[in-house]
């Protein structure tokens, strides 16, 4: 089989796929796309399935954490990603054979690729979430009790913090504290895993899937909506205008209300950092870990949660998750993990 590579021409598709899989969260892919395009000007990135790597070879995951606004201003630094990954390598005392993305949804899909380029390593065709989730630990490894440690966080100022050990509940607050100290955003490397474990426990083929999704999206973006939806393998829940937005507040999910302009149906989209669930006329239609996406109907661009405006013409649809989550994952990635109750009552 021919070696698969990500080229500069693939960036638009990769970004589009990642934006869709971001489900309205995961950060703005545009900064990452700029950088990736810049880095791929002179080289390309080799894409390998975890199963093709030596089973005991170590894979490190890289990504960005923190505020999208800070990232849009300070940009991303491949050097920081490499520094964080190196710090992790030092902890595990072994060579790293490949780099991977924490999540294939949103900005971090691209950041994973950027990290791999900077480290000069192949990029694993897979991730740990199959979409975007707000917490680093909402992933397939965590489901099997694997902690992200040793984990390293690096700032543009050259500071690197290494956390050799932390319990599952401590990950978010510790990471938030470090990130705040680093100016609101930072590069992170963690979940050093053997390729064998990853092939067994990770989400397989998600980078290829993301690229394919993005290609289909770009090809059908200007086509009639039913064509676009069918090409994406998505389910259409409504096309209409946003009538009301109730922002999330504390741990309580917010909602976006769309009135379908075709049949007047009431389409409700619940959200926290991501769009989590949608109900049509009060009947649940899709819910996390399904990928609920809201597209601007003018440009067909996938919208971030905070980009949705009252009066905007939007498309509400959902994509099946890239990973077949077992029932035991409900509390980790299901609606209840986001404070949504009663979604599965029927």
């Amino acid at each position: 089989m021919a070696e698969r590579r990500i080229e500069r021409e693939d960036v638009d598709a990769f970004a589009a796929g990642a934006a869709l899989l971001g489900a309205g969260g995961g950060g703005d892919v545009r900064v990452g796309a700029h950088l990736l395009r810049h880095l791929l000007a002179e080289r390309s990135l080799r894409l390998v399935p975890a199963a093709d790597l030596p089973p005991d070879g170590i894979v490190v995951h890289t990504g960005a954490v923190g505020s999208p606004d800070v990232i849009s201003e300070r940009l991303l630094s491949p050097v920081d990603l490499a520094r964080a990954a190196a710090a992790v390598a030092e902890q595990v005392m072994g060579p790293i054979r490949a780099a991977a993305a924490f999540e294939i949804g949103g900005l971090n899909a691209l950041v994973g690729a950027i990290g791999a380029i900077e480290l000069g390593l192949p990029f694993v065709d897979g991730d740990l979430m199959g979409r975007a989730f707000p917490k680093l630990t909402q992933n397939t490894l965590a489901l099997h009790g694997v902690a992200p440690v040793p984990l390293a966080v690096a700032s543009p100022a050259g500071d690197v913090v290494v956390v050799p050990l932390m319990g599952p509940r401590a990950v978010e607050p510790i990471l938030a504290g470090i990130t705040a100290g680093m100016g609101g955003a930072a590069s992170v490397a963690g979940y050093p895993t053997t390729a064998g474990d990853l092939a067994r426990l990770g989400v397989r083929g998600s980078v290829s899937a993301c690229l394919e999704l993005g290609r289909r999206f770009l090809a059908a973006r200007s086509a009639a909506l039913p064509v676009l939806v069918a090409d994406l393998g998505a389910r259409l829940h409504g096309v209409g205008r946003v009538e009301e937005i109730v922002p999330r507040h504390g741990g309580t999910p917010g909602t976006v209300t769309v009135i379908d302009s075709e049949d007047g149906a009431v389409v409700r989209v619940d959200h926290q950092e991501e769009f989590l669930a949608t109900a049509v006329d009060g009947v649940p239609a899709a819910c996390t870990p399904d990928v609920v996406a809201v597209l601007d109907n003018r440009s067909r661009r996938p919208l971030q949660v905070e980009e949705v405006r009252v009066g905007q013409a939007v498309v509400v649809c959902s994509l099946p998750p890239l990973h077949a989550w077992p029932d035991s994952a409900r509390d980790l990635v299901g609606p209840t993990a986001f404070g949504l109750v009663g979604m599965e009552d029927r």
Binding site: H34, L35, R37, H38, L39, E73, R74, L75, L76, S77, P78, V79, P156, A157, G158
Partner: peptide
């Protein structure tokens, strides 16, 4: 040392 990865006028 921040904001160095994408120089001005790229893209």
């Amino acid at each position: 040392p921040a904001a160095a990865a994408v120089p001005p006028l790229s893209g």
